[in-house]
Design a protein around this nucleic acid. Sequence first.
DNA 1: AAATATTAGATGTATATACATCTAATTGGA
DNA 2: TCCAATTAGATGTATATACATCTAATATTT
Lengths: 149, 149
Amino acid sequence: MSAPRPPSLPCLCASLRRTSRKLTQIYEEALRPVGLRATQFTVLQFLSLAGEVSQLQLGQMLAMDSTTLTRTLTILHRHGWIAKHRGKDRREWRLGLSRSGEKQLQNALPYWEKLQADLRTQLGNQRWDQWMQMTHDLTTILAEATIPN
Amino acid sequence: MSAPRPPSLPCLCASLRRTSRKLTQIYEEALRPVGLRATQFTVLQFLSLAGEVSQLQLGQMLAMDSTTLTRTLTILHRHGWIAKHRGKDRREWRLGLSRSGEKQLQNALPYWEKLQADLRTQLGNQRWDQWMQMTHDLTTILAEATIPN
DNA sequence: AAATATTAGATGTATATACATCTAATTGGA
DNA sequence: TCCAATTAGATGTATATACATCTAATATTT
């Protein structure tokens, strides 16, 4: 028995969150063998690409509240995957990947790359590219938008 | 000082989740006056539109694990917004809105409608419609997709 | 420089989310 | 009918997420 087709939802937030849940389930299944959750993989990969940043900067770039990052970083640090030291401003953390964190990211990358490739095939190049572009665009627009009260 | 532009992310999941976080923050701010979280509003609105469904069906249509719904429904029921009774199959719940739940949804709708309208303006009709379509489409594709191991 | 305001991150709390496992009810077979 | 297998939802646990509030450090004002 196949699942019923998902109904369309009138709320953009509801519709996007539903897609996000579904996609996250798929990515987390793929990353389960390496023991990374979607958010954890995202932080590791981002630090690898962006180099050293503060917690606040990391939060801004991922549209994640800084206090949310406190919890995520605690988990990653507990595993030994994060290198952190105080900045010139001693309130802030300068964050990067530890040696072990680089290693863990390398462990995860093959699973991630395979899934990305499989999804690209499923969606077709055009739709895949459109999604990559549109998610980035909307994030940018929302970051700059002034929503009236 | 304006926030730095969000960098593009190579991971579809990361990019979509970032958009989802940002959009959720905006919707939750708009719904705060009525005391509803995004997920809670979604469930109330969905039940209003779909009528009586079981917990499992609700979960399938929202791409939400049934055990996640147990927690969300507990909260909504505590507020008195959910009507539930056992189905012919006595393991399942038949779920609907209570009188008070209808009322609460009505309270929320003006805030939701205003935000939807404001966002439609910000994005432009074309991009808005594209988003409504693409989120629905991707959810459908992912629900039917067979991702290789 | 001293007092005040602001800022970075931590902590308390509530909800969101899903997996593993459990219980109770139902279904399918022998 | 009786038993095994399946199924709906509940519960335990871990993480994700953000707001309100707190502390310590920095920046601003007088």
